[in-house]
Amino acid sequence: MEIKTAEYRVWSEGTTIFYEGTMRLSGTEAYAPIQEMMDKMLEAKPALIILDLRNLEFLNSSGINLLAKFTINVRKNPGTGLEVRGTTRIPWQGKSLQNLKKLHSAVNLIID
């Protein structure tokens, strides 16, 4: 499955979801198709879901809210683990991804 616009692309391969580009959508409703894609993957109860953010150059706070919400949903499903991949090359990832660990300490946060 893939969601693609001129500014960003989100797609899944196996149980990994990749995010690319710049996401500055206008709020919860605008992010709903992406949230649906993430929730569907969680509903299938895989052992591990990987969010690969290493090519997501920019994310607004509504998008950070989406990641936080998903992390909390994973926390409520103890059979599924969560790995979040980021990079220090992209400043928001070094600054904001640490918050996900505070929401769910079992998140495996890998920031290259």
Binding site: T28, S61, K69, I72, W92
Partner: peptide
Amino acid sequence: MEANAENPESTGSGLGLLTLVND
């Protein structure tokens, strides 16, 4: 973040200012 996740109607507002201060 916890409150927003509990409330499906939540717009996530306030988070922008909080990330600016905290992050």
